[in-house]
Computed example of a mutant assay.
Amino acid sequence: MNDTETPLSEYGFESRFDERSAIEWMQANWTKAFVFCGLYAMLVFGGQHFMKERQKLNLRRPLVLWSLSLAVFSIVGAVRTGWYMLHVLSSSGFKTSICDQGFYYGPVSKFWAYAFVLSKAPELGDTAFIVLRKQRLIFLHWYHHITVLLYSWYSYKDTVAGGGWFMTMNFSVHALMYSYYAARAAGLRVPRPLAVLITSAQIGQMAMGVAVSALVYRWMQTGDCHSYLDNIVWAALMYLSYLVLFSQFFYQTYLKRGAPPPKAAKVD
């Protein structure tokens, strides 16, 4: 190690994280995501039926704690993964930032990559608050939760190219979104333009997801990006569907005449 390198001991638990065991576990168990999705579907449809004739619950304090905990997790994740991505971009360029698999093995990013994919299971709990509080549950919300969980677990096991961009963007948008919802749940007045900003960021994330998928496919042909055709197809279809749905949500919520007061989409 030369004088310019940072001692791994400074990273503590992140550097000690055994990413190889995590990847092996995911390779053997990624299909368990379907079990979570099945239970989640029961919550979505069975829960709404259960609450149909019952009084809605307030749950304001638990919602504040839930949203705040996910906001803190996302902020830290965005900072840690963002730092890695900025380092790769500045030192090796854009192409390497997409194709390099180092995101899954870096002394800091390796822990947050695994924490990211695992977090997609508990994040399904967002919907429980919507169901129990008898709020409007849109298709985009539960469709997004299911597909992100499945794709994240499916992709992590193969450490495919593009993961660094996908995860860092998601962490960053979540940092904004969950902070916004924690503030709203706490009864704070949040400027309306912030909701527009969050949905715009979500749309930008989806557009970038489509672009990254296309670039991975292009550079995979020359052997520069490690991925698989089926993974790229699923990623492109998933992000394209999100792009359409989020754009439609943006129009219906912020642009259409007679639309209700702006509210960020709690789906990403």
Rank of each mutant, 00 (worst) to 15 (best):
E53L: 09
A22Y: 07
N231I: 02
Q248Y: 15
V210M: 11
C225G: 06
F129G: 01
G258I: 00
G162I: 00
V79W: 14
Q48N: 14
I75N: 07
F73G: 06
V79N: 05
W234Q: 13
Q135T: 02
T81G: 09
D3M: 10
V196Y: 09
Y251Q: 12
L43K: 03
S179L: 08
I232M: 13
L65W: 14
P262M: 10
A41K: 04
R20N: 14
F17I: 00
R189E: 15
R80G: 05
H226W: 12
G82I: 01
R184D: 11
H144V: 00
T253N: 12
L140M: 08
K134A: 05
P122L: 05
W25N: 11
S91E: 14
L194E: 09
S213K: 03
L237M: 15
I138Y: 05
L243A: 11
A41Y: 10
M51F: 05
I146V: 09
G106F: 07
L70F: 15
V79L: 12
V148R: 00
H87Y: 15
Q135Y: 07
W30F: 09
A71M: 09
N58E: 15
E53T: 03
F171I: 01
E19K: 08
K56N: 14
L132T: 00
L86M: 12
K32H: 12
R80A: 14
V190A: 08
V76P: 04
T147L: 08
L59W: 08
F45N: 06
R257E: 15
L68E: 12
A28D: 15
